[in-house]
Design a protein around this nucleic acid. Structure first.
Lengths: 348, 348
DNA sequence: AGTTCTGCTGCAAACGTTTGTAGTCGCATG
DNA sequence: CATGCGACTACAAACGTTTGCAGCAGAACT
């Protein structure tokens, strides 16, 4: 029923190939002819069928974007940035949600494979080998995890975690809990590694609680464990968990930051919503979305360019972190992270 | 480079049509042959090319989902529900974000038109005529707005607004502000209509502030106007604005609900995050997502079934609404909405 | 034995585009 | 005047599927 290129050809008295070129290679066709064609097309309400075009060119001008949980406030800014960046390059973004499930993740990549030119895989829960395998089906750019041989964009959460721990130590905290994230998350491993190292270096003790689902409920659920651990400060895997923890502590009458300091990671919109406002590590999510789109698109033209982009993070000090029981130095508020912070070696 | 149906045919010694049937019409092919074919396909890592299939069948097994703002916590539950519901029926959902822009909205529908079997248009900002026009390009189901002649699923926000106003009146409030939403929003008009009527019926005064962007910032920005209006209670277009308003009032030292009561709409996750926790109108977003998918899918088989699905809303009383200056009756907390509440006539 | 039926498979056309090749025309060049 | 060229356009073959139709066995009727 909808008009095809053939109808337009008939209506304007030229061959279909001329119509095709009138759209996709204007310089190859006489301006006058082209005007005719375009007018006829407009008249008929013709829209090129992208499926047919994709069939022959092999490019769909779509890119897939897979996230673990669209309801996690970490993702929307990344999605929006990727979308508008892609739209500027005449690409459309199809978002899909895996529910934090590695199985669904694989299924989605496979399903998307033939209808997009590439997939942005955000915070994958699959194994590296699984991911490598999938990359043979469709060009992949991984976000929030380096995968050997694949283009990836990661945030330097190791630096963020280190800054957070140093911040807490400088406030006098000597016993710190790390509220771990989901298993399978590279970010989680990075944070644990860096936080452990930073704590040891500073002479503080770090107790790791987890792995946990990266949700508010899960943060609340760990409140007991945190109290039992007898720490004076907590670094959480993300803002969501930090918020859940603060809530649960509040319910138990434990004051933040007076009795326990809490630091989050991500600097989502939520972090300004808590009472007290959350000290957290800001991750450049929008920049990550744009960078991932760029890598995917140039990955088509050029082969294997920069394989790994690392974006810097930053500590944002608000009100949920305060002096610890052992007052030592305490340079206090408004600390800026060192600009020349060492980028983490991003292996695995 | 990737294996095609022809490679599989060659490898298993049958004709391509047999391979095709082995996948899409198993009962038409001998079980033994089929096993052979499937084995060969597996061996070659064959994946059917959906673009090619779509070209001939006319069905892509994809559905588009367009939302105004993916960062608005109202949408993720709807998106997730639609996604998992669709996945159960072997459909994939492509989500796109319009940034609350009617122009982008139209562009996206057009772009999606040829690569999906239908589009779910959530909270459209376009005009009805624009929408009707687009519905000739691609099957449409509209969410959060009835459009004559098109299938739609709406929430009975009118009832919700009425319940909210009655709740406030019963607490003794006589002067109530309505913090309006974005222009072009049907929901906004419904709320205003119902709230105005309910206030008049109950002998209260309703002052309308707006239209406003449906954001937290916008809610905060209206704090001055609310105070100037001299009201004792506010009904906001959505939770986001209610939250922003509460924040701004808090900053000015105005106590909620002691000095001003605030009621939101949507019952997003945010509403449990505020201090005090937000009284709000719960909208069944997940159910709406599922219903919309159902309508779109059956719209294909059967022609024009139920054109309009209306989902009930419910008042959730928490802590941001309290006694007003004129104490009258005050049945108070834990009020349940009447089950047999009259559904609003949902025109335009 | 002839006929119809059933179960399976092959053939080939179609879906709506793109694109390499070849053709036409007029015009300038040698 | 033949040749070459440039600008344009037509032709036709692809891309990877699906599907109506026809063919062909063998089984089951009459």
């Amino acid at each position: 029923m909808p008009a095809t290129i053939r109808d337009v050809a008939k209506a304007s008295g030229v061959h279909v190939s001329t119509v095709s070129r009138a759209f996709s290679a204007p310089q190859l066709v006489n301006a006058e002819t082209r005007a005719h064609v375009l007018a006829a097309a407009e008249e008929l309400g013709y829209r090129p069928n992208r499926a047919a075009r994709a069939l022959i060119t092999g490019r769909t001008h779509n890119i897939g974007l897979i996230v673990a949980d669209i309801a996690n406030p970490f993702f929307p800014p990344l999605i929006k940035a990727a979308e508008s960046h892609a739209r500027g390059r005449d690409y459309h973004v199809f978002v899909a949600d895996t529910n934090e499930d590695a199985g669904v993740e694989e299924e989605l990549v496979l399903a998307l494979a033939k209808q997009v030119d590439g997939v942005l895989l955000c915070s994958p829960r699959m194994s590296n080998t699984q991911i490598e395998q999938l990359s043979r089906e469709v060009p992949l750019v991984v976000v929030n995890r380096p995968v050997p041989g694949l283009p990836a964009v990661v945030m330097d959460v190791a630096q963020g975690a280190r800054l957070a721990v140093e911040h807490l130590v400088s406030l006098g905290h000597r016993e710190i809990a790390l509220l771990g994230g989901p298993r399978g998350s590279w970010t989680n491993r990075e944070i644990r590694r860096a936080a452990t190292l930073a704590a040891r270096t500073a002479g503080a003790e770090l107790v790791v609680l987890g792995p946990n689902a990266p949700t508010e409920e899960s943060g609340s659920a760990q409140a007991e464990a945190v109290l039992r651990a007898g720490v004076s400060a907590v670094l959480a895997y993300n803002d969501l968990m930090a918020v859940g923890l603060i809530d649960a502590l509040d319910h138990r009458g434990v004051k933040v930051p007076d009795q326990i300091s809490v630091v989050g990671i991500d600097d989502t919109a939520l972090s300004r919503r808590t009472r007290p406002m959350l000290t957290t590590v800001a991750t450049p999510t929008a920049a990550a979305g744009r960078a991932a789109v760029d890598m995917l698109l140039q990955h088509g033209d050029d082969r294997r360019t920069t394989a790994l982009v690392t974006l810097q993070t930053e500590l944002v000090i608000r009100d949920s972190s305060g002096p610890g029981p052992h007052r030592t130095a305490g340079p206090g508020r408004r600390q800026q992270p060192p600009v020349d912070g060492v980028a983490s070696e991003s292996r695995e």
